[in-house]
Design a protein around this nucleic acid. Structure first.
Lengths: 76, 76
DNA sequence: AGGGAAATTGCCCGATCGGGACATTTCTTC
DNA sequence: GAAGAAATGTCCCGATCGGGCAATTTCCCT
C-alpha cells in the first residue's frame, strides 16, 4: 500500500488545529456535543477549540484529535 | 528529494510533546531560559511543557515547537 | 569533593479556562 | 416563512495557568 497519507496538513497555529477539527467533525457527521461527549469534555471546550482559541489546553486538544482519528506527526 | 523525514514521531499525548521538546532543545544546545526567551514565554512554561503537563496552552506550545524547528503534520 | 551551570520547585497573584446551564443566533429543510 | 437542529454567546464560579522571582536541587565537569 503505497498510497500517501489521505490528507495531510501542516499545523502551525491554534487556528489551524481548530479549522481541521471542525472540518473532520462535520465530515464524520458529528455534532459538537457528540464530539465533546466522545472526548470526555464539554461543548464549551469544543467551541473554543474550533474557534482557534490559542489558550485551550494541550491535553484535551490532543484527545479530541485522537478521537477524530487525526494523527499528529512531528518532524524536526 | 525522496529522503523521508529526518526524524518523525507520532504525537498522542502531552508527554510525547514534552519529551520531544526537551530532546530537540538539548540537541540544539539551548537552555530552558533561552528557549523561553526565543519563544516569547517564561521558564515556568517550558518546565511544565517538558514535564508533559496536559494543561499547558496550545498556542504557546505550538510556538515553542515552531521555534525549535519542529513541524507538526496532521493526518486523517 | 568542589564549583558552577542548569533545572526544578515554592510562592504570589492577576487572568482566565472550561464545565454546565440557559439564552440567542445561525443554519438547514420543507 | 416556519420549525427544528446545531452552533455560539452569556454567565457563574471553582480551579489553576503562567510570568516572575528566589530558593533549592540536580547535573556536569574538573
Amino acid at each position: 500500500m503505497s498510497t500517501p497519507a489521505p490528507e495531510e496538513r501542516l499545523i502551525g497555529t491554534a487556528a489551524d488545529v481548530g479549522h481541521l477539527v471542525r472540518e473532520v467533525r462535520v465530515q464524520q457527521g458529528l455534532t459538537q456535543p457528540e464530539l465533546a461527549a466522545a472526548s470526555g469534555t464539554g461543548v464549551r471546550f469544543i467551541v473554543d477549540l474550533e474557534r482557534g482559541k490559542p489558550t485551550v489546553r494541550l491535553g484535551l486538544t490532543l484527545r479530541v484529535l485522537w478521537m477524530l482519528g487525526i494523527r499528529l506527526r512531528a518532524e524536526d
